[in-house]
Design a protein around this nucleic acid. Structure first.
Length: 273
DNA sequence: CACCCGATCGTCT
DNA sequence: GACGATCGGGTGC
């Protein structure tokens, strides 16, 4: 069973009418419910313009969150300081921090005063691959000790996984970086919401930025997914409304999260005497 | 490959 | 005081 096969179903969507490929998506594109916007975002390109360079990612997987109508949404109960951006104007980025170490980014939908958003889950890096890889590796080091060890020579002797001429899904995907790219394939650069943010250099400082502004550090350009390529299924890691099929992805794309049904974590047993 | 677990902290109850 | 819209490393089959 391929990733995300659970509950999959084909989706027919309306292409972003009147928006030529490469143009920034207009704000009114986002002034609709997230579940309508979401499939239209697949194939579109997120551009991150930072001092250290440009990274562009073509979206392959997204999830819709319907605010007040959706128990799984951060905006389900009421507006808080954290979720304020979701209640603002459409076309802006809602960035949140989770698990004490990761960022995730959403695109705000519906007009101001109402909350709805699309979580960007995965993408394929189509520009700035070297920078994206550098950021991913840096984040990896930072999260877990091991500060030293810069490019331990060690050689990748051992019985490396090899995988020389495997049936590459999209050409040469799957090759590892020569130095230090231990196990980090192109496919994994922006696969998963937190990894996507790492690759793009997205953090708290970008919360609220306007994705429709050409001068913004984070922008989104129109592009089409292959016709008939969009599938949908339940959202990942969602504890409520788990059966709502508001996760959308591009069929056959390597850069899509593995499907994991929600499972409550076990709590640390209280060591009481 | 499947499953388990630890890291780590802002947010809400 | 719990618990995530997660990730990555480890273990064990």
């Amino acid at each position: 069973m391929p990733p995300g096969a659970h509950g999959r179903a084909r989706v027919v969507r309306d292409a972003p009418r009147g928006v030529g490929p490469g143009a920034l998506l207009p704000r009114d594109f986002f002034a609709r419910p997230a579940q309508e916007v979401a499939p239209g975002l697949l194939g579109c390109v997120i551009e991150s313009q930072a001092p250290d360079g440009l990274v562009a990612v073509a979206l392959t997987e997204v999830e819709a969150y319907a605010g007040a109508a959706d128990p799984a949404s951060h905006a389900y109960r009421r507006q808080t300081r954290r979720t304020a951006v979701m209640f603002g104007a459409p076309g802006h980025a809602y960035v949140y921090f989770t698990y004490g170490m990761h960022f995730c980014v959403n695109l705000v939908c519906l007009p101001e005063g109402t909350a709805s958003a699309v979580l960007l889950r995965s993408g394929a890096v189509i520009e700035g691959v070297a920078l994206a890889r550098q950021r991913r590796l840096a984040a990896r080091r930072g999260s877990r000790g091991e500060p030293g060890r810069r490019d331990a020579p060690g050689g990748q002797g051992g019985g490396g996984p090899g995988v020389p001429g495997g049936p590459g899904v999209s050409g040469g995907a799957g090759w590892r970086a020569e130095s230090g790219g231990r196990g980090l394939t192109d496919r994994d650069l922006a696969r998963g919401p937190a990894r996507l943010c790492q690759a793009l250099g997205v953090d708290r400082s970008l919360n609220g930025v306007d994705m429709c502004d050409p001068g913004s550090p984070l922008r989104i350009r129109a592009a089409a997914a292959p016709p008939g390529s969009i599938l949908r299924g339940p959202r990942v890691g969602v504890s409520s409304a788990a059966s709502v099929p508001w996760r959308f992805w591009i069929a056959g794309e390597p850069a899509v999260s593995d499907y994991r049904a929600y499972a409550p974590r076990r709590r640390k047993p209280s060591a009481r005497p």
